[in-house]
């Protein structure tokens, strides 16, 4: 019973408090690089097999979610000799801190890599201090 309550609690936790999630259904978590640049945060995610039309990125209440749909990659009429990777949809979400300008996110999908540029808010950008 105690265990059950604990699990209940975890589910009740608001999504924004979870720093990261990899769900739902059978999906794969894309590998990502997060790079802090001078005036933006850049996220690169490997999503092979996902076309520009099938990729989705949303920012809601401090949670960035990226997902991609992969078309089945079977070869009709041929038999699989060896399989080293499996195709499946991609899904991953991140908590996004304050200080980012979420209104002006730039997203580019190229060669199966999703690139997001999230600009920093004006007041978080580095400022040079003038020395008198």
């Amino acid at each position: 019973m105690k265990e059950e309550q604990k699990m209940q609690k975890r589910e009740d936790r608001p999504q924004a408090l979870q720093t990261e999630a990899v769900e739902p259904e059978a999906s794969f978590a894309p590998q990502v690089d997060v790079i802090e640049k001078r005036d933006c945060i850049q996220i690169l995610a490997d999503m092979p097999g996902v076309s520009r039309e099938n990729v989705d990125a949303t920012l809601e209440e401090g949670v960035l979610t990226i997902s991609g749909k992969v078309e089945p990659s079977e070869e009709k009429g041929l038999s699989l000799q060896s399989g080293e990777y499996e195709s499946g949809n991609f899904y991953r979400s991140f908590a996004v801190g304050e200080g980012l300008d979420t209104e002006n996110v730039e997203a580019i999908m190229q060669d199966g890599v999703l690139k997001l540029n999230i600009p920093k808010s004006e007041k978080y950008k580095p400022k040079k201090i003038e020395i008198k």
């Binding site: 490997d46 092979p48 000799q81 199966g112 890599v113």
Partner: peptide, 18 residues
């Protein structure tokens, strides 16, 4: 790599994003 074949041809697919 994923490799498919029949008696006349083979198809090879590789995941090489980026």
């Amino acid at each position: 790599l994923n490799v498919w074949s029949d008696s006349g041809k083979a198809v090879v697919k590789a995941e090489v994003p980026g």
